[in-house]
Each structure stands twice: as C-alpha cells, then as structure tokens.
Design a binder for these strands. Structure first.
Length: 433
RNA sequence: GGAAGGGUGGCUGAGUGGUUAAAGGCACCUGACUCGAAAUCAGGAGAUGGGGCAACCCAUCCGUAGGUUCGAAUCCUACCCCUUCCGCCA
C-alpha cells in the first residue's frame, strides 16, 4: 500500500502519479486524508486520557499499599467514568483507521518515474526483441491442431472432467509439460542462483492481501471451502500464482540486511477464475483456468530494486533464448500495469500458429508496495528498519510456452522437432503421432 | 477427530491483580583493563503509532480477539498455532 506519510506530505504528487494509471481517483486520496485526520485527532485525545488513567491507577496502587482504603476508593470513583470515555474514543480512532486502510488497500501502486505514460497495451513501447520470426515452407498449424493430431492434449475430456478451460495433457504432452518444469527449475537454480521452494497450493487470505491480489480482485480467485462448512469460505484460496505464497514467506519479519538479496524460484499450478472472460480466446491453451508456472521472486534492498528488475528480466529471457524462441520485451505503460507493480516488463513469445505474440512472463518491481502490505522489513546497515523491494517474474508460464514451442518447431510432416536442451528432459528429440 | 501440556524480547527463561520501568542467563554493541585478544568489570540495546525544531515526551505491544477491573503478562470467554500421546489416513 501507499505510505500514509507520503500522502500526508505530498497529496498532490500522489494524486498526479495515481491519475496516470487506471484506478487513480483524487476523491479517494481526499477521503484518506480526512479519515487520517479524524484518527489522529481521536488518538491524541484518547492517549491523553489513558496517560491520566495510568497515573491515577498507580496512585491507587500506592494508597492501597499504605492501607489507605478510603482514599483509594475515592480515587476509584473519580476515574470510574474515564474508562467509558476511553472506550468511545478508542472506537472512533479504530473505526477511522479501518476505514482509511480499507481505501488504502484498494489504491494501486503509483508507477515508477521511469514508466512511460499511456492508456492501454497499444502504448507499451517495445524495448528489445530477440531472434526472428521463423519461416515455414508450409502453412504452420495452430497448437490446437497439433495437440489433437499428436495427442498431446485431450481438450474434450479435460472439459468433461472440470469444465472448459481445464486441460488434460496426454502422452508426450504430459511428458513435455513435466520436462519443461524440470528444465526451468534446473536453469534458475543452477545458472541463476535462485533457491528452489515448493509452496502450498492453497493460501490464506492474508497472503492474497499481501501481494495485492485482494481485496480488489477477489472475484478472480477460486475460494476453498472445508468440507460442507460454509463458514470456512473466505479463509483459503487456490493460488493464482506462486508469487502469493512465496512473496509472503517472510511476511511480518524483520530481516538482517546481510540476508539480502533473497532469490526464490518455485513451480506451482496457477488457478484463475477469469470471471467475465468467458468466450474470449477460450479455445486452446492460451487462456485457461489452470496452468503451470515457474515463478521467480526477489526480496532486495531498496536501492537495488530497479537494477534487480533488469536481472530478473534477463533470467526470464534466458529461457526463451535457450529454447531458441523468438520474443520481444515491452515496457508496460502507466495505463497497462498491474495493481501492485511500480514497473513491469512483459516478455512476449512469438507463436507462428497464432501469428501473434503471447505474454509468457511479466517481470515486476512492486517497490515497497507489497512489503508494506505484509509488514516485511529489513534492518539496514545503520540499524534502521526499511521496507525491501519485492520483485516477481514468471520464469516462465508454461501453457503458452508449450504453445510457442510446438508451433515454432512443427515440421512439414506434422511432427515436432524439439530444441536440444529439452532432449534429455523429454527423452526424445522428436514428437510424432 | 479425542486427551494432555504449552505460546513472554534475537534466543533461553522467571513472572497467578498494583515500583513490570518485563528478573536472571546466552548472544550482540560500546567503554575500561591489554601491545592485541581472551577473561573480567561497567554501560547500552525492541516494535508500532502520536506529539515536539530538538534533547525528549506520551500511548500501545507478553499467540489473536473480546470481557471483568480504577488498574491485566497475570482472572474470564472464544479462536489460532505448537508439542506429546491416541484414532484415522496418502
């Protein structure tokens, strides 16, 4: 969340920065300031009353120690109503704080100064591209046709099992999916210095709030109910990304600065309800309710946040370079960024069968935004508590990588010739029907 | 799911209604002693919020949330988590 002190001191600057992205609203900031003022006003009064109560209570204690009971009783009577006044003001302050924070939790992260202005994906500048679009002597097929002819994914039966948007990988398809997970984890742990973790796939509400998924995007998550007990709804959720548990690993901790940077990578399935997206690109594997992903998470010192973002991007890019897949990198403009991010690069891989670029990785620095939400801090060299920068990036999402891979490496005879790094993982060089 | 025990600072561990300003110990930092170190001695050191130009001051924090009381780490209620044992189970 946004630092309340920053809002107090420079409300106009905060408004201006928020206005540059969707979700900016001056009235919200004004409301926050008003509630904050109410809170502090009540707090000042209630603290003075509590100081008085503490003082008198000590005097009563002293009197009772001296067996001066009548005097003690007189003082008790004197302070009897103090508790009621304190209770009222305590509630006033707590209510104002809760209302203030409810708004703050729904305000997005103001973009970093290096983020270009813009209103939609059309305004995202391409910052680099790698390789070239492959050329074919035939018309390249879509992954849907390839999956059916090579029996890699059984779309109909996936839908029979769980509904549309769920995939049943079969035969070499299942093997390729598993191979990609293994390849990605090996790459990031052995080559890029990440520590592998395997998180729970169901996470608490606090985790979702911590990363900024909640409260605003609650309709995008799958909620879990324990048994038939409806009262347990709202406690646990299927994770939409491994970022949710992994970024929260150190929530509410104060880390020594010597422990930073922390680099985690994790495989997990990702569950997304995609409410309201039904019918939009639902055919095939490009937009599904469950997909696999290897996620990268960094916890770093403030001053290293944006340099680390470049490293994170390079680590994710390496995946596509090793697999020989053409891609481009775009820098998201202010109007296209995710809620929690201060700066985001998207990596889009070329999918010949789609004749389009597919987003396979989103690399973001959330700056202090997530760390504040989860109250994660570190003690710097001067002994001062600071909020670290939290970064996350896909390294990479698998369903779309799968699509780009088979569409790029399809042959005239309908088979798929795999790139060399995958041979040992898949156990074959070529997938045939 | 059942039974018992337990959750106190970076760690350990006292504390069953009023100098808790949370004892003692360990680890840590500073100083003294020393050529230097060890040992010893002395001192220091938490978090959050609010106020003040500042030295500082005030409030809150003993798993969480309520309650009783002039006053709660301490008493009451609910919940969460941990340990051990039993049952069930991949």
């Amino acid at each position: 969340m946004i630092d309340i002190k920053w809002i107090r001191e420079q409300p106009d600057l905060v408004k201006q920065r928020l206005a540059s992205r969707h979700g900016g609203d001056d009235a919200q900031i004004d409301a926050v300031l008003q509630l904050d003022e109410q809170r502090r006003h009540a707090l000042k009064q209630v603290e003075d009353l509590k100081a008085l109560r503490n003082k008198v209570s000590k005097e009563i204690g002293a009197l009772m120690g001296q067996k001066k009971l009548p005097e003690a009783d007189a003082k008790k009577a004197e302070t009897r109503t103090l508790g009621d006044q304190i209770a009222v003001l305590d509630k006033t302050a707590a209510d104002a704080e809760a209302a203030r924070d409810a708004i703050l939790l729904r305000l997005p992260n103001p973009p970093h100064a290096s983020v270009p202005g813009g209103s939609s994906a059309a305004d995202n500048p391409e910052v680099k591209h790698w390789g070239a679009k492959p050329e074919f002597a035939f018309t390249p097929k879509s992954h849907v046709a390839l999956c059916e002819s090579l029996k890699l994914v059984d779309f109909a039966r996936g839908a029979k099992l769980s509904g549309s948007g769920f995939l049943l990988y079969t035969h070499w398809g299942a093997r390729l999916e598993r191979a990609l997970i293994q390849f990605l984890l090996d790459l990031h742990t052995a080559q890029h210095g990440y520590t592998e973790v395997a998180p729970p796939h169901i996470v608490s509400r606090d985790c979702m709030v911590g990363v900024g998924q909640f409260p605003k995007f609650e309709d995008q998550a799958y909620a879990v109910r324990e048994g038939a007990d409806d009262s347990t709804l709202g406690r646990l959720y299927l994770l939409p990304t491994a970022e949710a548990p992994v970024a929260n690993i150190h929530r509410e901790e104060i880390l020594p600065h010597t422990q930073l940077p922390i680099n985690y990578c994790a495989y997990s399935p990702c569950f997304r309800a995609e409410a309201g997206a039904a019918g939009v690109g639902t055919r095939g594997m490009i937009r599904v309710h469950q997909f696999d992903k290897v996620e990268l998470v960094k916890i770093v010192r403030q001053e290293e946040g944006y340099a680390e973002l470049e490293k994170l991007l390079a680590d994710a890019e390496k995946v596509l370079q090793l697999l020989g897949l053409h891609y481009r990198v775009v820098l998201l403009c202010t109007g296209d960024m995710g809620f929690a991010s201060a700066k985001t690069y998207d990596i889009e891989v070329w999918a010949p069968g789609q004749n389009a670029y597919l987003e396979v990785s989103s690399c973001s620095n959330t700056d202090e935004f997530q760390a504040r939400r989860m109250n994660l801090r570190y003690k710097d060299a001067q002994g001062v508590n600071q909020f670290p920068h939290l970064l996350n990036g896909s390294g990479t999402a698998l369903a779309r990588l799968f699509v780009a891979l088979i569409e790029t490496y399809q042959q005239a005879d309908g088979s798929v010739l795999l790139p060399e790094p995958l041979h040992k993982y898949v156990g074959t060089e070529r997938i045939t029907a």
